[in-house]
Nucleic acid binder design. Structure first.
Lengths: 129, 129
DNA sequence: CTGGATGCAAACGCTTTGCAAATAG
DNA sequence: CTATTTGCAAAGCGTTTGCATCCAG
């Protein structure tokens, strides 16, 4: 998958491996700076873009335009509240069969997928009545 | 679903009904202006936000932060190329059963879902070899 | 009259880009 | 020594917000 990694790309990959959750580029940047690295924000974005293109890293874009990055193939999907924006992770995922089917029928090389349900969480159903 | 609609919200809903595809707020705005409306861009955003919150309109956010709007419950999912960004619509959708299940188990009132596969399209598999 | 809706322009936040310095091979 | 990578700062871009005006009821 990965051809050649720069030192910073390796550093970023390593950081992602130590995480349970997807992280934004900016949070990843400050996190790296706090461990003493002098890495720039642009480099973080460029590295994530490269890792994304070779399928190592996967991205989920929030409705505010912010993107969350994590290692690819970690299957975690969400229930997202349209009002408060909270995302509840869910375990179910019924789409793997479809994935291999699409690989063939569309000549598309699929790295990963995202699945997200939108609506109102229990709390916001009351507020927005 | 809808409580009360302002004149502009109705106008926007009408515009969406005439469309085959999801549209960005900005494109929707210029489209409305071209038909002689004096509507402002902010109003388009505010109307779409309101329609989103009552479940009439659904949103898909692209990786560049731009959001595409369409009437809710139109089931259209995508194969999206990580390199060129092209989105190929697909018909398959294996998640409806799960949807009602989640409604109950998480006390979440689900309006719609998005499902998207990411990878490389046939063309970009060659280029990026 | 009064509260909400609207248009405009400015502000915002995340991301991308230009560029010169640093680094790798 | 040349090509690539890097950090910084500035620019870009879609979206949101402040505010004065307009409009419906």
């Amino acid at each position: 998958m990965a051809i050649r990694l720069t030192r910073n790309q390796e550093r970023i990959l390593q950081a992602l491996q130590g995480l349970e959750q997807a992280i934004s580029a900016q949070d990843l940047h400050s996190s790296l700076r706090q461990t003493g690295s002098r890495i720039g924000l642009a480099t973080v974005y460029r590295a994530l873009e490269a890792l994304k293109l070779d399928g190592t890293v996967q991205v989920r874009t929030l409705s505010n335009g912010e993107s969350l990055y994590s290692l690819a193939h970690e299957d975690r999907h969400h229930l997202t509240c349209l009002r408060c924006g909270d995302s509840l992770p869910i375990e179910e995922c019924p789409v793997h069969d479809l994935e291999s089917h699409l690989n063939d029928s569309h000549h598309f090389r699929i790295f990963y997928h995202t699945l997200e349900f939108f609506g109102l969480c229990a709390k916001c159903q009351i507020v927005s009545g």
